[in-house]
Every structure is written in C-alpha cells, then in structure tokens.
Simulated scan of single mutants.
Amino acid sequence: MIFADAFAWLLDAANWTGPKSIPVRIGIHLLYCLGAVVGASLIAVPLGLYVGHTGRGGLVLVGGSNALRALPTLGLVTFLYLIAGGGTVGVLIGLIVLAVPPILAGAYAGVQEVDRGVVDAARGMGMTGAQRLWRVEVPNALPLLVGGVRNATLQVVATASVAAYVGIETLGRPLIDGLRVLDYGQFVGGAILIALLAVALDLLLALAGRFVVPKGLRLSAQPRRRRKVAPVQVGGSTA
C-alpha cells in the first residue's frame, strides 16, 4: 500500500512542475553534492597523497579521519548553517567536512598499497620523489582513490537530504513534508528518488573509473580464471 502511494506521488504531474518540483530539487541536490565532492577532493587528495608518499603523519591522519566520521551529520550541518549566518555556505562546508574522510582514506591507502618493489625500481632508475609520486604511485593508487570518491559521493547524496531541515529545497524536503503530515507515500517516494540518484551517480563514476584507471591495473584486480588442463594419456591410462 505504501509503495503504491509512493509511485502515485512520483507519477503525479503536479510534482514535476513549478519552482519546488522534483526536477528542481534534483538539480539543487546535485549541485550541493558536486560542490561538496569537488571541495573535499581539493583538500583530501593532495593531503592523502603527501602523507602516503612521505609516510609522515599517517597516525594523525587516520585518527583525524575517524574523528570526522563520528561527527553527527544533522548537528554539524545545522551548526555550520547558523555560524555562517544562513545561506548555503554553512551547509556546503558541512557536506565537505563529511566527504573528506573517505577521499582522504582512498588517496592515502592507494599510495601506501603500491608495491614497494616498483617504487624502489623507479628510485633506482634515478626518478626524483615528485616523479615517483606522479608517474608511479598515483597511477597505481587510482583504483583506491576512485573508490574513495565513489564512497564520498554516496555519503554526500544521502547526507545532502538533511539540508532540507534548514530550508534548502533538496530531495530531503519530501521526507520532511511527508513525516510532518504523515504522508508516507511522499516520504517513501522521496527516499526512492535519493536511492536512484545515488545509484545513477555511482554507475557514472564507475564508468569514469574505467577511463581513468589504467587497463593493466583493472585487469590485474580481476580474479584470474583457472585454466582447464586437458588429461594426459600415460601408458594407456589417463593422468
């Protein structure tokens, strides 16, 4: 019954037109997600690469990242919204703070997981530290780095819904309005839209990863298929 009401709400033409329509809210939701992921990447990627390359501050990095993960989402966004005096800046900063840990972890772990033999070989060829980082470590770290960006995107898509609590017309608005008037069809419909948006963005980033990550790394990450060995005839018997 609830899902029938949800699909009825989704198919209602009135919800697809006007300044507070579903397309407008999807666009606002996407803008906040894009701003948060890009802003977090500008902070987390250089920091993660530096710590992973130099090995300095790894313990502080992990501890700080875990501390950021423990921050309450709604409280942080609301607090920064009030500190910034309203508007979108506080909400965007809150989303950036929450998106930093997974990207930071992906960049740091990606560099740390690079085979030390490969790095030593590059050093033996006379490469400088910067050359080893950008020509050896970063290409090999891309799978984990892209995975960190994907995790951050999924988290931000879900978290951006709380921006509706401070009056921003994201996809969280149907959730709040549905709960306020006990319209569970609207509530579930909004949740379905958020889930579909998260899946669509994840698939898009997975496709982008296929072009960014070198083919050799993608093939090496796939499980190897065991080759079937044909039986050998030995002295009239099968071995």
Rank of each mutant, 00 (worst) to 15 (best):
A198M: 06
A221M: 10
V213G: 11
L197V: 06
R227F: 14
E169T: 11
R218W: 13
R225F: 11
R225H: 12
L193I: 00
Q186I: 00
R180H: 13
G167T: 01
L171R: 03
D183K: 02
D183M: 05
G236R: 09
A191N: 07
V234L: 14
V234A: 08
L175Q: 04
P214K: 09
I168A: 04
S220P: 06
A198C: 04
L175D: 03
P174G: 09
R224L: 14
Q233H: 11
P174N: 07
L182E: 12
R173M: 15
A195P: 12
V188Y: 10
Y184P: 07
R218T: 10
V181P: 03
V166T: 05
A195V: 13
P214E: 15
P214A: 14
R224C: 06
L179A: 15
L193H: 05
L201V: 01
E169I: 09
T170D: 04
L205C: 04
A200Y: 05
G172S: 03
Q186H: 01
V181Q: 10
F187I: 08
P223G: 06
L171C: 06
Y165R: 01
V188L: 13
Y184K: 07
G189V: 02
G236S: 06
V234E: 12
F211Q: 08
G235T: 03
S161I: 08
G209W: 06
L193M: 02
I176W: 06
L171Y: 04
Y184L: 11
V212L: 15
Y165G: 01
L175Y: 00
G185M: 03
E169H: 14
L196H: 01
P223Q: 07
L203W: 02
R218P: 10
L197C: 07
R224I: 01
R210K: 14
G172M: 08
P174V: 05
V232W: 08
D177T: 11
R180F: 12
L219T: 12
V181M: 13
F211H: 11
E169F: 11
G216Q: 09
R218L: 15
I168E: 00
A208N: 06
L179T: 10
F211I: 04
A163G: 00
D202Q: 03
L196V: 00
D202A: 09
A206T: 04
R226P: 08
V199P: 02
T170V: 07
G216N: 12
A195C: 14
G178F: 05
R224S: 11
A208Y: 08
L193S: 01
R225D: 14
Q233L: 15
L205Y: 07
R225L: 15
Q233S: 12
I176P: 06
I192F: 02
G190S: 07
L193F: 02
L171S: 02
L203S: 07
P231D: 14
E169G: 13
Q222V: 11
L175K: 02
V229F: 14
A206V: 12
V188K: 07
G236H: 07
S220N: 12
V166Q: 00
L207D: 13
